[in-house]
Amino acid sequence: PRKKPPPVKDGDHLLEYHYTLWFSRKSPGKQSSSSVSYNSQLKCIMTFASIEQFWLIYSHVARPHELSGHCDYHLFKDGIKPMWEDEANVKGGKWMIRLKKGLISRCWENLILAVLGEQFIVGNEICGAVASMRYQEDILSLWNRTASNNEVTSKIRETLKRVLNIPQNTIMEYKAHTDSIKDNSS
């Protein structure tokens, strides 16, 4: 279940949206392709409403590179579950960026600061961001509401390139969630 953000203190800087940070870990040996088991692995860490609340949480959770095994951080707008079945995601898609080991923590921080700071300027299109830690590589994803809106997805791509500070030759791939479901890749 999601949690309410704590009361905002005097002097806190409010964010445009409230966000929830989730964590999931694939249990070894278990088949976890169904949304039921994925749902049960999702743990809500915290919902926050201000910059200061974000930093408080962020400084208390392990950074992505410190985690071992197959696990994910999900930072989504409050009220949107980090799964394609959510009504905000069902027509959406994601930009995926595969990263060599060693880059994920810095890139994840760059990505979420851009999301929280409203740097994408695509209205309410951004749903959330995911850091996926895997054995051979790590993957960053940025989810938006409308996969069919090319103007929005290219604008997101340009902002991603600017804020992430990743090598020029990094491959960025866009996938509609409906395609990920069809090819069973996510």
């Binding site: 002097g11 806190d12 409010l14 200061e52 400084s59 929280l116 700071g117 409203e118 740097q119």
Partner: peptide, 21 residues
């Protein structure tokens, strides 16, 4: 309406604030 926009350096500066500790 107006959106609340923050750049990276401002967000990082807020990390130093006592409220974020």
């Amino acid at each position: 309406g107006t959106r609340i926009v923050y750049d990276r350096s401002f967000l990082l500066k807020c990390r130093e604030s006592p409220l974020a500790q």
